[in-house]
Structures are given as structure tokens and as C-alpha cells.
Amino acid sequence: MIEFFQQFTNGLAVGGIYALIALGYTMVYGVLKLINFAHGDLFTFGSYLGMTFLISFALSGALPPVLAVVIMFLMVMGCVALSGYLLEKAAYLPLRHTPRLTAVVSALGASIFLQNAIMLFYGPNYEVYPDSLRISSSVNLLGLDVPVMRIIMLSISILLMLALYFFTQKTKLGTAIRAVATDQAAARLMGIDVNRIISLVFMIGPALGGAAGVLLGLYYGQIRYDMGTMYGLKAFIAAIIGGIGNIPGAMLGGMLLGVLEAMGAAYISPAWKDALAFLILIIILIFRPTGILGERTAEKI
């Protein structure tokens, strides 16, 4: 039971990371019907940026830890958002009116490019997050020791997700995003600047992905240039599980995948952990291709 609870909270913490990345996939898919394969590498980029800010700018020494982390988060989110914006302009905007799959190839190319740019800059080995910010203590929760880091991670990801949820549901700009996702032509007729909304989506998604990258660095303490591929794929799988294009679906799917993986690793075998996500993907696509919260639509003939 203790084992189960530990795995469960661990799963939730990792699931929060999946969910944050998945939001980027699902929002882009919503407005462009495109899998932004480079999104996982933006996540990696965010993780490396966070490390750089902490070390190079001596953020971890000069300021109180909480303030340092908050500033770093904001800086990373801003920088990764800018990268997302540039990525869209360079690799996807010119392909807006070509067959969908050319954009998919472009996305793959952008992913390979980003990943190798990070490798050339930071090197091919594991990099380490400064230890001083990684809280190793645990708190006693209902008689169980839970690492503080897990609680912090889960809180930050839930906080970010709630913020996004209220933004898309309650603000005018958020409504515009949903409108573009539902029907681009109609949204344009209503006077919505579709290109601006797409740019916005390409900033919000990567900002969240970048934040997830920092969380991951703080959680595991080490990062690598190619981790974006696997985390990206798993987050995409999470988005499909929840129903691609659906924002609450991505949150649900991410958490679910995190917990299932943790349970699989604990009760089946850790060696098969990475295969589990793909197995779940195949099962979902066979039995419910629209995911848990997605709606079925008929193909227009």
C-alpha cells in the first residue's frame, strides 16, 4: 500500500510534466491539425535554458531560492515562447496551404535541427542541475513520507494548467483560440486575426513546455539533449489518450499516462516502462481513436 501510494504520487508528478508538454501538442493540433514534432525539443531547450540561467547568472546564489526559481521560470517561459514563435514563422507558416503531411515532415526536420543545435552547444552528455535548489526533504502526509519536490512539481503544473484553463475559457483571447480551433474560416469571418491567434498558440504551448523542462531538471537533477524525443512522444500519446485538440483532455491524459507508467514500472517491470506508453497508444487508437474526451466526427466526403 505504501509502495502503491509512492508510485502514485511519483506518477502524478511525472504526469504533470507530460500534461504540460501535451498541452502544447494539443493546442497546436487544435488550430493547425499538425503534430508539432519540434515541441519535445523546445521542452529540452527550456530545460537547458533553466540550467544556464541558474548557473551562469548565479541566480541560485544571489537571490533567495524561491525568488530565483520564480524569476528563472519566467525567463525560461519567455525565451521558449519566443523560440516557438520563430519556429512557427520559419517552418510552418510557409506551409499553411500545402498538403498536411509536408508540414509534418517540416516539423520532423525542425525537431532534428533543434535537437542537434542543443547538442552542438551544450554537448552530448548528461548535464546536471544545481543541487542547492533541489529540495531533498520529505513531508509526512497521512502517515506517508512524500518528497517535497513531488508536491512542488505537482502544484506548479496544476497551477499552470488552471491558469491556462481559465485563460481559454474566460478571456476574450482564449475564446478566440477556441474559435479558431473549431472553425478557422468562420473565426476569420467574425473578425478574428487567425494568424495572430496561431502565433499566440505557438507561444503559449512552448512556454508551458519550457516550464515542464525546468520542472523535469529540478525533479531528476540531470538532463540530456535528446530527452525531448521520448518525452515529446509520450506527451503526444498523452494528448491522444485525452482526445487530441482537447485542452482538459491533455491534462487528464498526461496525468493518466504518468500514473500508468509508474504503476507499470513498479508492478510489471521497469525494463518495459518505455514500451508501455506505445502499447497504450496502439490500444487507444484501435478502440477509441478520438481519445477519452474527444468527440467523434464523420469524414466529409
Binding site: S106, A110, S111, Q115
Partner: peptide, 8 residues
């Protein structure tokens, strides 16, 4: 990577 984007 860059070539794939440019080609598309």
C-alpha cells in the same frame, strides 16, 4: 534537419 524544412 534544416534541409528537411527547406525542402518542404
Amino acid at each position: 534537419g534544416a534541409a528537411m524544412v527547406a525542402m518542404m
